[in-house]
Nucleic acid binder design. Structure first.
Lengths: 209, 209, 209, 209
DNA sequence: GATGAATGAGTATTCATTCAT
DNA sequence: AATGAATGAATACTCATTCAT
């Protein structure tokens, strides 16, 4: 292992060290209330060092979400690549992958939504921004393709798009997600209401017996 | 109408004037970048006046979401109250109500998620906080009840809770919502991918043909 | 006196209060070592207040020089305007004016040189920058005209060097040097005004034909 | 040549390499905006190395001016030393020398003025400071002597103003101004050398008896 | 009630300087 | 000698909030 390689690894280790500290502090104090000094202290580094690895606070914050998105995308690629798999099997793997991501960071949704706010996006470097856009686009495409193939292979029923169904579904699920996020943030053991198991089905299908 | 009453109305009018201005500025500049002076200017009032009607910036921001939640809850109450209605009809009214709310403020989801962040919650007055908790609990209960009655009346199929299905569903829908929010924020007419119409169904039911 | 007028005066008084404090601290500690808090403390105001009257530290610094330039220009205008005066008399008044400026702020040359540095110029607002350029151009033009007319009218008479001539010569040449340094820094090919060839002679010798 | 000698030369070469880089970057970005890393990059060295050759940023900056002052002083010494030369010839050589310095660094006046600011002087090491004071004193003395002897020997003859006289005059007066500004800043009662009363006349007119 | 000038606490960011390798 | 990663002190500037009028 050359000296170059050793340095590269050392650098990666530091980056990780900072990200771990940042994730911890952000999830406790929230984005605004967290100071760069808080993170530095948690990482046992000086404030200045943080800026050797991340352009600014926003970019450090965004990097946390990017990490998970990358993980998700790479996992999904592997799900999709294996030719032999049936659409049904792919759905199962998709679910499993999503759950893994969730276990790694239960706040992923809250963070992604916050990342979306113009507050943060405007301070990111162009490459970082492009990377995020590209990554989320490819992830969405991949997920969509899994379902499309199921439909075209006639394994899944094709359901004609319903007027506004997506938006309404999004609103409905958003409200439930909001409940869910309260549970996560406050770390209370209040489960989502069980009635929603049925609700999701009905609402998204627009079907009843 | 007594002088007391006139004052009360005047006071309500001012409050509304501020909320309208706040909503406008917040949705353009985001929470952090919006200053109290921005809002004051938009409302054609002085900064000091804002504090006669709202305890602080966080409480002003939260009030916007509370307004919509109150609107949603009141609508849903009316949906539920009418005894004669069938569960199916109630679902339809629920969808319609949600869409109304969406039209009133497409950013509602983003705002609710932001409100959830500990950043803001910690600055709210106790009564305000209690009000929000109460309101969201009652709203969720109401929605749940609509589905429960459909199930107990055997109008809807009862679906046994699947292990983790809620969480996975939330993750999946969260990612799609994230896409949707990009569309709203950037005001582009990129619709959610049509494949998701089928995806929602499959994913939430865990069922295929 | 209306309320408007009273406010305008109050505002002007505050501005002056800040400038006086700034001049004092700057001349003791130099530009870089002086902090905005130093100035605020000296002016018995809070740091934030400084920014209600000056866009930033650079603009506050520049305003000090602008003030003197304005004073100089206005004095010189009066010198020039009185039609009946002889060129000789105008030279005397010019010397007197320069000496007044010197007495008001002996550091004027150093400040003008520093102001000239790209460090500061780049942070000034466009109007401020334009004002400075305009003011210095007009001042230089005015001085040049005084000598031109004396020469073309062939009215100077010889006199022995006067006491203080060095200081006055320094002030005069400093202004021309300032012009020259601008030329050097901006790499523009605007030569020093040719009238100064004669001006130097007359000014330094106190002699004319 | 011993190993000692080789090392000494190598050391000098590095020093020069740094000064060349520093001069280039300082003249582009100005003192404050130039970082030590900028200079290191330009010199193709590491930041740490700069500190092996210069105590700190201020001392590096000052060294640039010292270099030129040394050059000027050495040249002038040679002008003066040759006994046989006439005062007139000495004036010509003085002019020529000043112009050389000007060509080497047109920003010399600006730099000297900046060096004069208390900002920088306070950070210099005692020997460096003494060296600067000594050097400038001796340079001024030398120039003064040239004029004194010309006057006392009654040997100047009249000449018409020469091309470039403005620039040369500026250089000359700049040095005196620099002296004058030191006096002002340090509040010392060292008057400008009286010989300059005559010097100004001769130098600016290009005339002698 | 309304104002808006003044406040001053709070923080992201920079960069000269150091020192282990 | 040279490196350059790490340091951490230093500070301009912002803006939510207050309060005398």
């Amino acid at each position: 292992m050359g000296i170059q390689e050793r340095k590269r690894r050392e650098r990666k280790r530091r980056r990780r060290q900072i990200l771990v500290a940042a994730k911890k502090v952000f999830s406790i104090k929230g984005f605004t209330k967290t100071t760069m000094e808080d993170i530095a202290r948690e990482a046992e580094l000086s404030p200045g060092t943080l800026y050797l690895y991340f352009k600014n606070k926003d970019e450090l914050y965004a990097s946390l979400s990017v990490e998970i998105l990358e993980h998700l995308y790479n996992k999904l690629k592997r799900v999709y690549v294996k030719e032999a798999q049936s659409p049904q099997r792919r759905i199962d793997l998709l679910k499993q992958t999503l759950f893994e991501v969730y276990e790694f960071d239960p706040l992923i949704l809250v963070n992604l939504f916050h990342l979306q706010s113009s507050d943060i996006l405007k301070n990111l470097s162009a490459p970082m921004l492009a990377h995020i856009r590209d990554l989320s686009q490819k992830t969405i495409d991949l997920i969509a393709r899994i379902f499309e193939e199921g439909v075209s292979g006639q394994v899944f029923i094709e359901k004609p798009p319903q007027e506004l169904s997506n938006v309404m579904w999004a609103l409905f699920s958003g409200i439930v997600l909001w409940e869910e996020s309260k549970r996560i943030i406050n770390d209370q053991s209040v489960p989502v209401h069980p009635a929603f198991d049925t609700a999701f089905e009905i609402f998204s299908r627009g079907i009843s017996r």
